[in-house]
Design a binder for these strands. Structure first.
Lengths: 345, 345
DNA sequence: TTGTACGCGTTATCAG
DNA sequence: CTGATAACGCGTACAA
């Protein structure tokens, strides 16, 4: 069981039982013997303030441990919060962790911070997060949208919050977006399998209510069409949003009378599920093509080729789009950036 | 008074190119034909408000797309922001992504949101994040501290912000903490290797300036001491904070005249580096014991045993500590919760 | 160069 | 049940 210890309390001075209220400009002003306005000026860069007063204020700030109240600052007209809202589906998926990191990397240089929320592919939760973030007056919003629900996202746009969709788009919503060449990547990868001689290729991916899955499935289909190959409907499993579901789906495929000879796994969660199912079934040698790279992909026992792109770039570019809008440098029209997806045989 | 959309209404012109300022209680009140106070009451639950006014306000809110300004709310005395600051070293490390998710999971049920920052093991960046988060008046702070720097963390405590350290502690700082049984886990794992007959075991881990690495190394040493085994100093590599550095360190170990026969890898980054080095050296069969589990650990070609614990639990428990403090239910003294680390042979 | 007055959006308080 | 008033911390506009 869990063990509680008392921490060392040898420092003597016990912290205040009640958090005393934070010092304000008033307090600093009093301590420095100046007016609040002078304090504000010093904090704002100290232009047109006598050096000795700057020193006095600085000392008082130091002494009191004063910090500006960013929330109070932000309610003034024309002020920004310096917050970027990031709504992803699940940070536990390294893909989205990278996306989050890329976004932070870019906006941190502008002194901005990240407000992060996970939707878990739940539209209602996504809506709640969007609303909350708008209520907190984020300067921008990066969203990996779940499904095709537009209302809450449009209301963000209507509220004047720069919005950048990431990885996925939503039809009927004109917003900046950074997406990936899902179709091209899936097409090339599937063609490669066909060129290798496979005719029974399985598709294992997310629900087609997910933008990327729809597009990847379309690429998969087009490769077949170009080769004049029929697709056995049994081989298309597009309903798994996590690796466990993917494992179950793949297990079924392996039990077919005519199982697939190769698998196109449409994202990293599905790839992992596919691999687990193969191992369980004693077939750790399946030919797999995976959309999205993942850590240790090179260490699995499988014959694995990958359609690669960098989710961190998706986050970076989405953040750049937001920053561009904030600087007022962007055209009014929504911009869509499609990043390449590179097939590595 | 000079609200942009007011002007628009008067001129009856096209929708604004520039983001109009958000509607306020005033606007809603005007639209509903009530006072701002009534609007506030309705939003607060509608107690002691006539149903017809509730309806009118609700309609106006809906029509205008009104959202409360959380920043304005939070500057009032006794009000909270509903923000939890989370400072981790790197979300791209799935360990910390899980920690972040666990924290969100717990506080989300209390309606709180996460302000997240990555320190990248850089104290200066950590300090900047702590200061910024305090300036934003977070209700609590979860920090995975880098190194032994105390000043900025103490100042958080001094500011009255509930602070919970996660994974690591800092000496000289009395603060709540959720840590892991690093020593016990490392001890048991190393003993297991010794029991298997290994006498030349390498330690590959973070800098010992990192709390966990110090403790894991101590456990490693104690296992040797108990068995009466000397540790070859050449086999102890405690300076790698990412997998590339770990790979390099392991490569050196493999080139020793008497290379180790087993490796204790002190965290998931080091484990991955160790594995890569072994593969490069054509030795993908090394006996490895790893602290921290990671996705696909079961799919590598290595003989891998793991000292396991759930980083999501670390995040959850740290968040619970914060919530407990916020509810005023906690003893004043700092609490330290040590989660078990289970060895799986 | 410095200070005063005011308002940002919200809600607790108190009067009606 | 409802509304006027005031104040939270800060910074702009203006005065001194």
């Amino acid at each position: 069981m869990y063990r509680y210890h008392d921490a060392m309390t040898e420092t003597g001075a016990t912290p205040p039982l009640r958090p005393h209220s934070a010092p304000t400009v008033q307090d600093v002003a009093a301590a420095a013997g100046v007016s609040p306005m002078t304090v504000s000026r010093v904090l704002g860069g100290g232009v047109n303030v006598r050096p000795e007063k700057i020193a006095a204020v600085t000392a008082a700030v130091e002494k009191l441990g004063y910090r500006r109240n960013e929330n109070a600052r932000s309610i003034r007209p024309g002020q920004r919060t310096g917050l970027l809202g990031v709504i992803i589906t699940n940070v536990a998926n390294p893909y989205y962790a990278q996306l989050q990191l890329g976004a932070e990397e870019v906006v941190a240089s502008a002194g901005m911070r990240l407000l992060v929320g996970n939707s878990g592919e739940d539209v209602e939760r996504e809506r709640a997060l969007v609303d909350d973030f708008i209520g907190r007056h984020v300067d921008g919003l990066i969203v990996v949208p779940t499904g095709e629900h537009v209302a809450h996202l449009s209301s963000a746009v209507a509220a004047g919050v720069p919005l950048a969709l990431a990885s996925r788009q939503v039809s009927g919503l004109e917003a900046d977006a950074v997406i990936v060449d899902d179709h091209g990547g899936a097409l090339e990868a599937t063609q490669h399998l066909i060129d290798e001689g496979h005719t029974r290729i399985a598709y294992v991916g997310n629900t087609t209510s997910v933008f990327t899955s729809r597009r990847r499935l379309a690429g998969f289909r087009e490769a077949h069409a170009r080769a004049g190959l029929e697709i056995d409907a049994q081989l298309v499993r597009a309903a798994q949003n996590d690796s466990d579901a993917a494992r179950a789906a793949m297990s079924e495929l392996l039990r077919l009378d005519a199982p697939p000879t190769a698998i196109f796994a449409a994202n990293n969660r599905n790839t992992i599920g596919v691999m687990r199912a193969c191992i369980e079934a004693g077939a750790p040698t399946a030919r797999i093509v995976a959309f999205d790279d993942f850590e240790l992909s090179d260490m699995t026992p499988f014959d694995l080729s990958i359609v690669d792109h960098d989710p961190r770039d998706v986050g970076r570019e989405a953040a750049r789009m937001i920053l561009t809008r904030l600087r007022g440098e962007a055209e009014p029209a929504a911009r869509v950036l499609e990043l390449p997806a590179r097939f590595r045989a």
